[in-house]
Each structure stands twice: as C-alpha cells, then as structure tokens.
Simulated assay, not measured.
Amino acid sequence: MNLSAAPHRCAARAKGLLPLAAALLVALPSAHADTGKLLLTGGVSTVEGAAGGGISPWAVIGSQATEGERGVSAYLSRAETQDYGLTATGVAVGLNDRFELSFGHQNFDTGITGTLLGLPGLDLKQNIFGAKVRVAGDAILDSDTLMPQIAVGVQHKQLDSSGLDGTLDALGAKRSGTDVYVSATKLFLAQGVLVNATLRATKANQNGLLGHGARLGGADNGYEFMPEISVAYLVSKNVAVGFEYRDMPNKLQRAGAAAGLGDGLRADAWKDIFIAWAPSKNVSLTAAYVDLGRVVPATTNNKKQTGVYVSAQFAF
C-alpha cells in the first residue's frame, strides 16, 4: 500500500468533485439553500454517499437544504487498516429536505490479499447510486416528542471489472446488486443526543467490494436483513462524538469453505468510534477509529482490520 501517494490521489479527487457539486447546485430548479440546518444534525457523508454517519445511512437528508430549498454536498474520505486502504468520494443532492440523490465512488486497495492472489497492486473500484426519501417525522420539529424521522433508501452498487472477476465468478458472486434500507433517526435536542437505527436488506459481501451473494457450495444467495446502529452526543454546537455498528452478511464463508478455504472468507461487523467537528455550517471534518473485523482472513492470518478513518464534507 503506497501511503505517501494516497493524499495526492485524494486531493485530485476532491478537486474534481467540487466543480461537479457546484454544477449540480446551479442546475437544480428551486431556490438555493441559504438558511441551513443546525450544525451536525444533518449528519456527514457515509462511505457509500448517503447522508448519515461514516458507515451507516441515517434518515436525515444530505446538504444544508431545509424545506423549500435545494442543496448539494461533496465528500472525500480515507480509511487505513493494517492490510487495506479505502478511498471514498462522492456527491449528494438534497431537495426540500425530503429527497436525496447520491453518488459514491470507492477505491479499495487490496494490499496483501491482491499480492497473495498473484495480483499485486489490485484495486477494487465500485460505484454506488443512491436515493432516499423522508416518509415521516422531522428530526428538529419533533425533537420534543418520541416521533423519529423515518426514511426509506435504495443503493445500487456496481463493481468494476478487475483481476478478481474469475474468483468472484468461481464463488458464484455477482458484481452488481441493490440494497434497500429503512432508517429511523431520533434527535433529543435538549439532551444533545442523536440515535439512529437502520435495517438493510442486502446481498453485499463486504459492502459490495467482494460482490453480491454466493452460490458455490450451496451458499445462501438471498437477501438478508442487517441491523445498523449509530449514537452521537453533541459535546457543543459544532462538535459531536459517538459510535456506529453495522452488521454484515456472511455469504462468502460457506462458499469459501467449499473452495477449501475453511473460514478464510468470513466477514464480521463494521464498527467505529468517531468525532466530528463543524468549523462552519458548510464544512465538517470527521476522524474515527475503525474496526472492520476480518476481511479475507485467509490472506491476513485471521487478523482483525483496525485503523483510522478521516473524512471531509462540504455542504451547501
């Protein structure tokens, strides 16, 4: 993994996304967002593009747009573990604080796994097209009641062709798939606490970076319902700390066993502990300790992948 080159690649992606975000904002037909939400109550950008925490979508709608407004956000994120690296970039458009359209791009550096597969320098690239609609509640207006804000979302994920195609085909995993989720976000404004619960129907292996589903060895190839939980505490009006938990399907484990790998393709839940800071209403910076569990443990000595995550979001 070339860590010294990563900041330069990330900066280049950020320069490309900001003009796109500006163009999207200009092209939208309604009034620009000029008031904005309370700091950090709209979440940040997930590694998949939707508004929420770092690894799980919330029921909030991305950007600074409130009712009657349109807005746009762009983000750049980087996660580093002992053996892997992930760069995520994307944009989201918020309409009337009710609809969200998002696009995320992920570049996963396979590190030691690619080398042991005879594919040194292998990067897995994935595009994620998302949509979300708020169907009930309002996080701010209902903050003094028990009613949460509820949203329904969909994410279509497409993994680019790579040297891993033959392996995924042998395991019976597809390179594209669609997740559907329901999120409920409750803001206790007086206490400065935000709680989110998401239930996701998915076939994705490691968020889709290892394809979707598996058929080898009679592995379960249907949708599974995976829970995701986020809790954040507003230390001040512009600083929040919290944690996230996201369960993952384990569809490749049985397929891996049938291929003679034992538990070598086992997947674990993703977790993080984060701090988010909003120096202004248009900028938020997030840092986190991440635990992705085991990612292809057959090539990493069954080691849990822990490390750091940093993200910058620009929202208007």
Rank of each mutant, 00 (worst) to 15 (best):
D268V: 05
V93F: 08
R246I: 04
G68W: 04
N221Q: 10
L38W: 01
Q106M: 12
F225E: 03
V231E: 08
A88T: 13
P227G: 01
F274I: 07
A240L: 12
P57E: 10
P148L: 01
L18P: 05
H212P: 09
A151S: 15
G260R: 11
L25I: 00
G62N: 04
V308M: 13
A287L: 08
D247E: 00
R200D: 00
T35H: 08
R9V: 11
S311G: 06
Q191M: 05
L164K: 02
G218R: 07
L18C: 02
Q191V: 04
A173T: 01
Q82I: 02
A240D: 02
G114M: 10
K186N: 10
A201C: 04
A33V: 07
Y289L: 14
I150K: 02
D220N: 13
L38E: 13
Y84F: 15
Y84C: 02
Q206A: 10
P19Q: 08
A298L: 05
A170I: 09
G213T: 09
V180Q: 03
L39F: 13
Y245A: 11
L24D: 05
D291C: 10
A23N: 08
A288Q: 03
T113Q: 02
D263C: 03
L209Y: 08
F188R: 10
A214S: 12
G130I: 02
T41M: 01
F99Q: 06
R134A: 11
T306E: 15
A204M: 05
V135P: 11
D220I: 03
N2G: 10
Y84E: 09
P57D: 13
K125N: 02
L168R: 09
L25T: 07
V295S: 00
G172F: 05
Y289E: 06
T145F: 03
L101M: 10
F108E: 09
T81W: 00
D138A: 10
L86E: 07
R294H: 00
L28Y: 04
S45I: 04
G71D: 12
G166R: 12
D144M: 06
G49V: 08
G217N: 03
Y289H: 12
N196Q: 12
V231A: 14
G293N: 07
V310K: 07
S311L: 12
P29A: 05
L252S: 06
F99Y: 14
R9K: 14
L3N: 12
A51E: 08
L17E: 11
A258H: 10
D179A: 12
G218N: 03
I140T: 14
G94N: 04
F188S: 15
L194I: 15
D160Q: 06
K125G: 07
R254Q: 14
D83I: 00
V154E: 07
N196C: 08
P29F: 09
D34Y: 04
A59W: 11
Y245C: 01
A267I: 00
N107Y: 03
K157H: 15
I273M: 04
N96G: 01
V239M: 12
R13Q: 13
L199Y: 13
N127F: 03
V295N: 01
V283F: 15
A11D: 01
S161G: 13
G121C: 02
S230A: 11
N282D: 13
